[in-house]
Simulated scan of single mutants.
Amino acid sequence: MNRINLQAFTAGDFDKGAGKLKITAWYFVNALLVRASWNPFMGIKVALLRTFGAKIGKGLIIKNNVIIKFPWKLTIGDNVWLGENSWIDNLDYVTIGSNVCISQGALLLTGNHDYSVPSMPYRNAPIVIEEGVWVGAEVVVCPGVTMHINSIATVGSVITKNTEVDGIYQGNPAVLVRKRRIGITV
């Protein structure tokens, strides 16, 4: 019988995208100024994210306790909202289009492990969140997913596959439940 052997785990060819000094500096800046609940000043948070390599458009709303693992692997369009306690765990690249809402407690998860190999090596993939998407509260978006234009992930859903344009998804794993109709009262 094959057994899991985490002692054999190595990061392999995983690239954090920055040197140890930058990663260490980000750790402290993030903890003390960006993620900190005492700092309500979004301009300071945005400036620090840009200083560490994030590409950010205008109008970012970044609430308290937002976790961003590696800002140098993050691109954000215009007029984006990042809700309280959302987490961009970007071991790989995350691209967020304009007019996107990432609600409180949402998790954009670019990393995973290959559980079919005893040492469980990384199995990472980028995430793309296109224009007009709404990622609901406590949603998990999994590695390699593209959420297409104007799609929605409802509260607590787990998005494991690409979404359709204007699709509304619900559940674990999330499935298409209906189409989004903008400008039409439901």
Rank of each mutant, 00 (worst) to 15 (best):
I127E: 03
N64W: 05
C142V: 03
V186N: 03
Y93M: 14
P143C: 06
S119K: 13
D89T: 11
L6N: 08
A153K: 06
N64D: 05
A8H: 14
N85K: 03
G83V: 00
K63M: 14
W87Q: 13
K20H: 07
L82Y: 10
D78F: 06
W87L: 11
N2Q: 10
K20I: 15
V145L: 11
Y115R: 09
V34R: 06
I159C: 10
K63A: 11
R180K: 13
R180H: 07
L60S: 12
P126S: 13
H113S: 04
S157Y: 10
I182T: 13
W72I: 12
R50H: 06
P143H: 02
S151L: 01
N39E: 08
I184M: 07
V46S: 15
V155W: 09
N162G: 08
K179A: 02
G183V: 05
G97L: 06
N90L: 10
N65W: 09
H113N: 05
Q170K: 12
Q170N: 14
F70I: 07
P143G: 00
L32F: 05
K63R: 15
F41M: 14
N99I: 05
V94C: 09
V29E: 15
A47Y: 10
E138V: 08
W72E: 01
A174K: 12
I129Y: 11
V140L: 15
W87I: 13
T110Y: 06
T154A: 10
A106P: 12
A31I: 01
K179F: 01
T95Y: 09
V66N: 04
K73E: 00
L108G: 09
I168F: 03
P71H: 02
Q7C: 04
M120E: 09
K20P: 09
V155Y: 14
I61Y: 06
G53A: 01
M120T: 10
L32H: 06
I184G: 03
A11G: 07
I149F: 10
N64L: 09
V135W: 00
F41N: 15
V66I: 11
P126D: 12
V34W: 04
S103P: 02
G167R: 00
W26V: 04
L91D: 01
K55C: 05
N64F: 01
V34L: 09
V186W: 10
G144Q: 08
I68T: 15
N79A: 07
Y27N: 01
K179N: 01
G83N: 04
V158G: 00
G156D: 05
V141T: 07
D78G: 09
T154R: 15
D13E: 10
K45V: 13
T154Y: 02
L108W: 11
G136N: 12
A125F: 05
W72V: 11
W134R: 10
K161C: 02
P40G: 09
N85E: 12
G57T: 04
S37N: 15
N150I: 01
T75C: 12
W26A: 07
I62Q: 05
A125S: 15
A25Q: 08
T146F: 13
I4W: 12
F41G: 08
M147R: 07
V158A: 02
T24P: 06
R123L: 13
M147F: 09
L109W: 04
P121E: 10
G156I: 00
V155H: 09
T185F: 03
Y122L: 09
T110P: 14
I88N: 07
I102P: 00
V117N: 14
